[in-house]
Design a protein around this nucleic acid. Structure first.
Lengths: 228, 228
DNA sequence: CGAACATTTAAACTATAATCGAAATATGAA
DNA sequence: TTCATATTTCGATTATAGTTTAAATGTTCG
């Protein structure tokens, strides 16, 4: 009877707790093995395998076989974008334990969202770049100004290379914890990569939270006028 | 255990066939009564009431009581945007009957998507405006050129009024049937409204498909160089 | 080769949620 | 008031989908 694309079919894939947890983990943009994801979602490897097969069939994730491992990844930016949008209108995490509360605090402070920075760090950074006149927000995208082009170049980033990527160059992603936009897209990813390369931030194992190093604090102060 | 916003909770609301059908009907941007939606989704009023309560609780729809009717509507543009994104990566409708096939044909030709035009008409229109130099696409938004400002004014639209609306002014929405972007946002809505006012298009009852009138065909040819 | 590990497949169980009939509530009309 | 209509609430049924245990497949490494 339906004369519309089968939205429910895809949405149902996102609408199950274990699968949603898996997808959120994959929102760091990296590859994860099936057993890793099973551990994170607190389910048996069998169940994870079942869910991952469904996600792959629905083209929400990609698989790569390497030896006896299977590496899973968010399929594409379109999928990441939907998850971002959903994050923005979803109820915040319920806090049930002290340990969990700490983890949420860390996430709110600084984390990766798919492949770019989010949380307080992501938002402050974006604001700083707008204040400095490097970026201008137009609707849902950020436009790099001439001043910005220079800045990013001096900061060691190759914009022309980023622009060639087959994806959004620079869009605004709504931050669920800060309720503000932060920089996403190829530019957001490039900046994040540069931060990692410079040793300004480090991943906190088994979570999407990141830690700002001492070096990073100094660098943020000097280059972005941010006290972190 | 979860340290992420409860994405699954919201996604689960979209992941059930009846609810998805209801939301898709509401994607025409207008108010619909509970019984109307029950009829469309082919469920009893009780079941529809149950689903609508859930959708309202999840802030995906708004309710307005008028007399013994309750009028439901998509809650906001953010929700519409998520549905749009989901449409783009969802499997196309399965064709099971001849009558249904006809309906899908009509939808593919011209329909409303939330509050703007989609389908062949929506995409052709958008292309035409880009060719004419009225619009320029930047990432995911359309920018109105100086030439465009003049055109829309001559066409009887008040852009400054549209810009004041608390919503996206003009973004690109991925069309599921045409696999191209069409114009959305306040500008897309304004243009659609103007088309209705001019009598160029008419709603086909109980579907999101629209019909281009003879007057509309002439107008499209003259103003947008489109043969429809 | 054989042992250890990663992952999937199969079969059975269980819990949840969609559904409907029946009844209640609320509004409008006569 | 009384009747008709729109919608919701309640209770019970049913179907589906997530889960687990057990077993199979495939891969690495000594």
């Amino acid at each position: 009877m339906s004369i519309n694309p089968n939205v429910a079919e895809i949405a149902a894939l996102l609408g199950e707790t274990s699968r949603a947890t898996i997808l959120m983990s994959l929102m760091d943009g990296r590859f994860h093995t099936a057993s890793e994801l099973a551990y994170i979602a607190a389910i048996t490897p069998q169940t994870a395998s079942f869910h991952l097969a469904k996600l792959a069939e629905g083209r929400l994730v990609n698989v790569e076989k390497h030896g006896r491992h299977r590496y899973y990844q968010i399929a594409n930016g379109e999928v990441a974008r939907i998850l971002e949008s959903l994050l923005a209108i979803s109820p915040p995490p319920e806090v049930r334990s002290l340990k969990q509360s700490d983890q949420v605090q860390l996430l709110r402070k600084a984390r990766t969202c798919y492949d770019h920075l989010a949380g307080k760090l992501g938002v402050e950074l974006t604001k700083s770049m707008m204040n400095a006149g490097y970026l201008e927000k137009e609707e849902r995208i950020f436009v790099v100004t001439h001043k910005g082009e220079q800045f990013f170049m001096n900061f060691g980033m190759d914009l022309s290379k980023l622009k060639k990527e087959r994806r959004s160059f620079s869009h605004a992603c709504l931050d669920w914890s800060e309720r503000h936009h932060h920089l996403a897209g190829a530019l957001g990813h490039g900046l994040t990569t540069r931060f990692f390369d410079l040793g300004w931030i480090e991943r906190i194992p088994s979570t999407r939270a990141v830690k700002v190093t001492e070096k990073g604090k100094a660098g943020l102060k000097q280059n972005f006028n941010i006290n972190f």
